[in-house]
């Protein structure tokens, strides 16, 4: 039974930076714009994380805005 479409996400690789993740998730986009998109879709990570900017292996990182 197929699952309904939900918001797509990835999880960070070991020691992956937000820049590397942005390039992986949004290939072809200019780096700065890709990073901005990733951050704006994932404020649950980038608003309150200590230390700031730390990506965790268990993070859910959305690679698109909310669906619908």
């Amino acid at each position: 039974m197929p699952l309904t479409r939900q918001r797509r996400f990835v999880t960070p690789g070991p020691d992956e930076t937000v820049e590397e993740l942005a390039l992986r998730a949004l290939p072809g986009e200019p780096l700065e714009a890709a990073v901005d998109r990733i951050k704006s879709w994932n404020l649950h990570i980038f608003a309150m994380r200590k230390p700031a900017g730390l990506l965790l292996g268990s993070d859910v990182v959305f690679v698109e805005p909310p669906v619908g």
Partner: peptide, 23 residues
């Protein structure tokens, strides 16, 4: 396991540093 908890310094607890492969 936990995806939200932090220690007394606000640092994520160890389980949150795990890759999905570890879980």
């Amino acid at each position: 396991t936990s995806f939200v908890d932090v220690d007394e310094n606000g640092r994520p607890v160890p389980s949150r540093f795990a890759q999905f492969e570890e879980l």
